[in-house]
Computed example of a mutant assay.
Amino acid sequence: MMPLPQSGAGATEAHARLLVESYRKWTGKALLPLVQSESVKEQLFEASIVILSHGTEADPILNYGNRRGLELWDMEWERFTSTPSRLTAEPMEREERDRFFEAVTANGYVDNYTGIRISSSGRRFYIVNATVWNLVDDAGAYHGQAATFSEYQYL
């Protein structure tokens, strides 16, 4: 059994705010109901939904996963945040995943995405109704993409 990830792991408050603010920019909705007096990074990390993101590298690397995401992919923070995001999908699913991320880049976000993913231990699961969005700061600089979902089914 995987050890529980540490609370907040290596996330920063700034990245957590970027996730929340970019989500609101594209969807017009709150990612989570947040308590203003508490750390955004802690609230995202402990959320009941899966939240993850990747950066802007040529082969984008995962740079954030909350506790639910780390548990679903069977990884600790250090391994998760050094994994190319394409490796979260099986090889046969990667071409579809790439086309999907191109649509997100062009449109800002996409709702109701479903697809098959695979954990580090080889367990396959189907994500249902995910929202994927571009991470863009107040100056309009692109910082990668993020995803959230609450529904998944093991295959």
Rank of each mutant, 00 (worst) to 15 (best):
T56H: 00
A16I: 05
M92P: 00
T81K: 04
K29Y: 10
A9H: 13
T27M: 09
I127W: 02
Y142E: 07
E76K: 05
M75N: 02
A130V: 07
D111G: 08
W133F: 12
T105R: 15
M2N: 12
Y142C: 02
R94L: 09
L135A: 08
R86D: 12
L34H: 07
A47P: 08
L135Q: 03
D137N: 14
A89N: 13
D111V: 10
R99G: 06
R86N: 12
E78F: 05
Q36E: 15
V40Q: 01
F45T: 01
P84G: 06
L72R: 02
A106E: 12
T12M: 06
A139I: 02
L70V: 06
S7C: 11
L19G: 01
Y113A: 01
T56Y: 00
Q6M: 12
E21K: 11
N63T: 04
M2E: 11
F149V: 05
K29T: 03
S39P: 07
T131P: 05
Y64L: 11
L52K: 01
A146E: 03
R124K: 15
A103P: 00
D59P: 02
Y154Q: 10
Q36Y: 04
I61F: 09
M92K: 15
N107A: 12
E96M: 07
R79E: 14
A14Y: 07
I118M: 14
W77P: 02
E93Y: 06
S120L: 04
A9D: 14
Y23P: 01
G28W: 05
Y152F: 15
M92N: 12
G108Y: 02
K29R: 15
E95F: 07
E71V: 05
L4R: 14
I118P: 01
E38K: 14
K41R: 15
E95R: 10
E90L: 13
A47I: 09
F125Q: 06
V50I: 15
L44K: 07
T81D: 03
Y152S: 12
H15L: 14
R17H: 12
K41E: 11
G55M: 04
Q145K: 08
A106R: 12
L87M: 11
A89T: 10
I61A: 08
A11G: 15
V50Y: 03
D111E: 15
I127Y: 02
Q145V: 04
D137M: 03
R123G: 07
